[in-house]
Design a protein around this nucleic acid. Structure first.
Length: 219
DNA sequence: TGCCAGGCCGGGT
DNA sequence: ACCCGGCATGGC
């Protein structure tokens, strides 16, 4: 796809600039899973407030949320936006995990493919969220693609084609060693890149670590 | 002040 | 196979 710049070169360039990013803020698997839902199309800053509220309410766990009333949950996560949908979906996910598996640990210990399809079957969980949970909460080698990754790769390739999630994920997974820590860091690097350089409105600039391998001229 | 953020879903073409 | 509107808050 993106010409001569393979994932290894891209990773080296990003890593050199940003260093190793020990990423996904969140101490526990519960917190990571909850954060993965809350951060959908939402800045992490707003998610942090919601997570703090949950923590203060002693509700930062799958178990606690599974038995909470949706109305209460809505108020706690309000700052994360789309809070009515998110409350409903998060509660449904947590209830499902507890009722079907007994604990988050049991749920996450499924093999990767099964975990992924189980997650994808839930309302409000698409590919990115499923992969993020599989990778960061369960520690399975499921490569995460997000809007920043897609944007960056389209810019590198510069042929005007749009990339789909599945194709891009396959592209990376076929070319990178099967390494959970590498998968985590690679995704983190793309997010860092996106936040700083590849915002929709920002044109490619010379300070971008990928400037040397990007095709210019397409916003 | 508007535009944007680490998506997802349902409906239309 | 795309493209769109809806969902919602808070920061710059």
């Amino acid at each position: 796809m993106p010409g001569s710049a393979g994932p290894d070169l891209i990773y080296r360039l990003l890593r050199k600039r940003f260093g190793f990013l020990n990423w996904w803020p969140g101490e526990t698997r519960d917190e990571i899973l909850i954060g993965a839902i809350l951060t959908q199309q939402t800045s992490w800053r707003n998610v942090e407030k919601a997570i703090s509220s949950l923590r203060d309410a002693n509700a930062l766990s799958v178990k606690a949320i599974s038995s909470m009333r949706v109305g209460v949950l809505e108020k706690l996560i309000r700052s994360s936006g789309f809070y009515r949908q998110k409350a409903r979906r998060l509660k449904k996910l947590c209830s499902h995990i507890i009722s079907e598996y007994g604990s988050l640990g049991r749920f996450l210990s499924m093999d990767m493919d099964r975990l992924r399809s189980e997650l994808l079957a839930m309302d409000g969980i698409g590919q990115e969220t499923a992969d993020a949970i599989a990778l960061y909460a369960a520690g399975k080698p499921s490569f995460v693609i997000d809007a920043y990754t897609i944007r960056a790769m389209e810019r590198i390739s510069g042929n005007g084609k749009r990339f789909g999630y599945g194709d891009l994920q396959k592209y990376f997974m076929e070319r990178l060693p099967l390494d959970v820590e590498l998968y985590k860091d690679m995704h983190a690097q793309f997010v860092e890149l996106g936040k700083r350089y590849c915002l929709k409105t920002k044109p490619l600039c010379n300070e971008c670590p990928l400037a040397g391998i990007c095709a210019y001229g397409k916003g």
